[in-house]
């Protein structure tokens, strides 16, 4: 599994599609779709994802997630809990990932994984 993270609008999906040659129709937007498709975009919308189930069904998937924890802690408790849950999910996924990259202004930085991909 590969984890791609970065702020909103940094070019994460573009980067993955360019790198892999996959098209938009090969990108999943729900955990159910993600069992069948090679790329899952918008992971931050699913903070309570059962990653064990997904990775059992699709161990080679490329996961794309917004980094959402780098602002002022929100006043709304639900927003706070969501940010926290997304952050913890990313920590767990990064620990299991063969590769983690962070995209910033369209530029990738490798955080984990030595070998090149695609």
């Amino acid at each position: 599994m590969i984890l791609i993270i970065g702020g909103a609008g940094q070019g994460k999906l573009d980067y993955v599609l360019r790198k892999t040659g996959y098209g938009p129709d090969q990108v999943a937007h729900t955990p159910e779709e993600a069992k069948q498709k090679p790329v899952f975009d918008g992971l931050e919308q699913w903070p309570h994802l059962d990653e064990g189930e997904l990775l059992a069904a699709n161990p080679e998937i490329i996961l794309i997630c917004d980094e959402v924890g780098c602002g002022v802690v929100p006043v709304d408790p639900a927003q706070r809990a969501w940010r926290e849950a997304v952050g913890r999910l990313c920590c767990r996924l990064a620990a299991r990932a063969g590769r983690v990259e962070r995209v910033f202004c369209g530029l990738p930085m490798t955080l984990k994984g030595e070998t090149s991909w695609n």
């Binding site: 959402v68 924890g69 780098c70 940010r83 926290e84 849950a85 952050g87 913890r88 920590c91």
Partner: peptide, 8 residues
């Protein structure tokens, strides 16, 4: 440093 829930 790090964001919320980053494991810092």
């Amino acid at each position: 440093s790090g964001g919320s829930g980053s494991g810092k």
